[in-house]
């Protein structure tokens, strides 16, 4: 499982870059950071199954069950919907942010707090 080390570095890197970005005060960076984090999260799920250089989880013609070696279909099913949903959420976030910018006239998250309380 030496691939795991590579994946681990990549997931760690994506999270670190994403977190760094969402901690910026510019609200645009917040969205980009979230996108990076969702990539990281998807890969985290991917890596928690078995990562193998193998064929897709398709049952071959003429057979009735999946024959190894094959990739794990379970994390794939989880990630597939996660990708689409993170798209929906990010789209919502983007529109929300652009609305907030238009309403409040600032892109600095430190100044956005005034609407909170």
């Amino acid at each position: 499982m030496n691939l795991q080390l590579l994946l681990a570095i990549l997931v760690g890197g994506l999270f670190a870059a994403g977190i760094y970005l969402i901690l910026r005060r510019s609200i645009v960076k917040l969205i980009i950071g979230l996108a990076l984090i969702s990539h990281g999260a998807n890969l985290l799920i991917f890596a928690s199954g078995r990562v193998v250089r193998a064929s897709a989880p398709l049952v071959a013609e003429g057979q009735t069950s999946l024959r190894p070696p094959h990739a794990d279909p379970l994390p794939q099913a989880l990630i597939l919907t996660a990708i689409v949903i993170s798209f929906g959420v990010l789209a919502f976030m983007m529109v929300l942010v652009s609305r907030a910018y238009r309403a409040l006239g600032t892109d600095d998250t430190d100044e956005l707090r005034e609407t909170d309380s």
Partner: peptide, 13 residues
Amino acid sequence: LGAVMFFLVLIAG
């Protein structure tokens, strides 16, 4: 947090 995630993936593997 990146480091924590790094170790998490390693251990998951």
